[in-house]
């Protein structure tokens, strides 16, 4: 358990975004982008940031299944839901309390609900293999 725990912070947004993405107006969009940028800089400065980015709308996704003899391609996201992954952060945090506090800040900055999920660790993979 020597490595710092990593978490995926995912933000969900509407499947059919407006012309301003998930935001009601252009000002709101620009403000959210600015706040998110500032939040990302803070993550970077405090040594939490591993990676962060936003995604194009889910309508641009292609789903691939390469398990069969012939690869199957489907236009669109894997799950048909009302909300889709819109962006995410991968962060390092000492524990869940730290990750949750950062997620709350990120949620406020990007104007979205954030799901916090831990990554597997070397230790948990080992336990999985042993079970």
């Amino acid at each position: 358990m020597s490595a710092v725990p990593r978490y995926l912070l995912s933000v969900y947004g509407p499947a059919e975004p407006t012309e301003f993405g998930a935001y009601p107006s252009q000002e709101a969009m620009l403000q959210a982008f600015a706040d998110t940028r500032a939040f990302n800089e803070r993550l970077q400065r405090d040594g939490h940031l591993v990676f962060a980015d936003g995604l194009e709308p889910a309508t641009t996704a292609t789903t691939v299944d390469g398990q069969g003899e012939k690869t199957a391609l489907t236009d669109g996201p894997y799950l048909e839901t009302k909300e889709h992954l819109g962006g995410f952060w991968v962060i390092e945090a000492a524990d869940l309390d730290v990750a949750l506090a950062l997620a709350a800040e990120g949620s406020k900055a990007c104007r979205g609900t954030v799901e916090v999920r831990p990554f597997r660790t070397e230790e948990s993979v080992r336990a999985l293999l042993a079970s």
Binding site: P5, A94, D95, L96, D97, A99, V116, R117, P118, R120, S124
Partner: peptide
């Protein structure tokens, strides 16, 4: 608790 690293700790004075 284990996978998400829920801390084994008394919260800070703020919380």
């Amino acid at each position: 608790i284990k996978a998400a690293h829920i801390p084994y700790r008394v919260p800070s004075a703020d919380d």
